[in-house]
Amino acid sequence: MKRKEIPYKDLKSDKVSFIFNDITVTGVRGQPIAVALMSNGIYTIRHCEVTGEPRGIYCGIGHCYECRATVNGIPSKRTCLTLIEEGMIVSSDTDISYGAE
């Protein structure tokens, strides 16, 4: 509960590193995963479970689930909403049972 009573604050200063599919990516604290990836030139977040086509963000605000990835072992997290944390492990594996494709 305490955690979420957010008096709005922009913490655009310190760097945060996390792992994306075996590579280390550095972003800025307060950035969602998809934003940190894009600032590092990474646009593909996962591959479609059925066709194998690459997928990236679409709506950017949590409505479409196109940007989902596995974060610290939890599947189908929306990377446009999930903020980066030091040492976080993000992978393109997605739960095939999720979403209609």
């Binding site: 969602p32 479609c48 086509e53 690459p54 963000i57 679409y58 709506c59 605000i61 479409c64």
Partner: peptide, 18 residues
């Protein structure tokens, strides 16, 4: 659905907020 095709709202949020 290709990577790089995004909604106008995403474009706005990524450009101005992020």
């Amino acid at each position: 659905t290709k990577v790089g095709a995004i909604s106008v709202g995403a474009a706005q949020t990524f450009t101005n907020l992020h």
